[in-house]
Design a protein around this nucleic acid. Sequence first.
DNA 1: ACTTGTGAAATCGTTCACAGCG
DNA 2: CGCTGTGAACGATTTCACAAGT
Lengths: 213, 213
Amino acid sequence: MPRPAGPPMPAVARLSLYLRQLEQLAAGGAERVSSRQLAGSLRTTAAQVRKDLAYFGQFGQPGLGYNVSDLIRHLRRILGTDKVSKVVLVGAGNLGSALLRYRGFRKKGFEIAAAFDVSRSRVGSAIGEVKIHRLDDLPKIVRDQRVRLAIMAVPAEAAQGVADLLCGAGIRGILNFAPATLDVPSDVTVDPVDLAGHMEQLSFHVASRTEEG
Amino acid sequence: MPRPAGPPMPAVARLSLYLRQLEQLAAGGAERVSSRQLAGSLRTTAAQVRKDLAYFGQFGQPGLGYNVSDLIRHLRRILGTDKVSKVVLVGAGNLGSALLRYRGFRKKGFEIAAAFDVSRSRVGSAIGEVKIHRLDDLPKIVRDQRVRLAIMAVPAEAAQGVADLLCGAGIRGILNFAPATLDVPSDVTVDPVDLAGHMEQLSFHVASRTEEG
DNA sequence: ACTTGTGAAATCGTTCACAGCG
DNA sequence: CGCTGTGAACGATTTCACAAGT
């Protein structure tokens, strides 16, 4: 039985890069782009771009390349960002507050609908339009507004408990900044962003290149 | 010509995860751990753990597993975090200020030595121990203190210029939060963290699982 | 009995190279 | 002639399975 063979995950990750580049090209007034041009500024090859896009459909015209604004529309549709998605944020500390104010999410079609925290002093206030609620109010708000995405910026010790709460409330995807591995049902996607871990990766590469080079 | 065959990059990325888990085990008083236990809480298999560690040396004892604190020491040495590393941060806006206050870096052996910004109003102030300097002072400070790592939290438009400045000053690794692809010399490592891009990935997974499942 | 380290096999992802369209 | 879409070749990574150590 030959699997339907979904796209490789790295290919999906590159879709975001292509989209970003295309949006810049569109802003510059470009109408068409070739796989080679698209690959040029990013860190891939023309063949990679074509193969990646081909997993999702036939978007180009031989001899002409791709229509910039059409391809943008296609990619947004594929990524699910052609409509605005509501997001909840849990943990309005250092990082959480910064993420609440971050404009980049809005630009890409994500709207933070509500924030949650356990701290009495933070609950009730608002950070840039977004109100901070008690954690206990999370299930009701998530369900009423049919929110499917969440951002977690809580301490590691609190992470699993919050994840359970989110999953119970019907959340389907979690962007996790807590340095903890989450145990969630298989129909929930977790995207871990380990800030210190990324620094460790850099450190490794710098260290190895220093001793060999 | 059979390449010296360095470790696969995904294996290096998992080292950070193993280290995190080991530190937790050590805090709980554990002395020994098997590849199976280590794999259990994280999302891998015992074979994967053994293979990953074996790229860097022979750290375990057949029949007994790994000594927790020894393995921690080995991993820190490999990642280059057995000594504290100085880091500079460029861009003390929303995200930058939050990263300046983030405790996770310190815990993992990274010390933010100085921060830089273009805004007149921010320069001269300090955020949690760290002074904010003019961008023009960056080369001198980086060189004098021999800083090799940088965190960039600047707008996309400013990213390439800042990257050039950092590379010119001798920085060897950049953690890049700007939504832009950086062009840097081949001996400089860039680790891109595209926050909006991560949300897009989540959105994709949630969207595809909703229509199929 | 349980565990590591490791070749060999299998899987997954990328690059190549070219047929066919505009 | 330049460009896309794609099967086939290649390379990288993961999984398997087992010999050897405790």
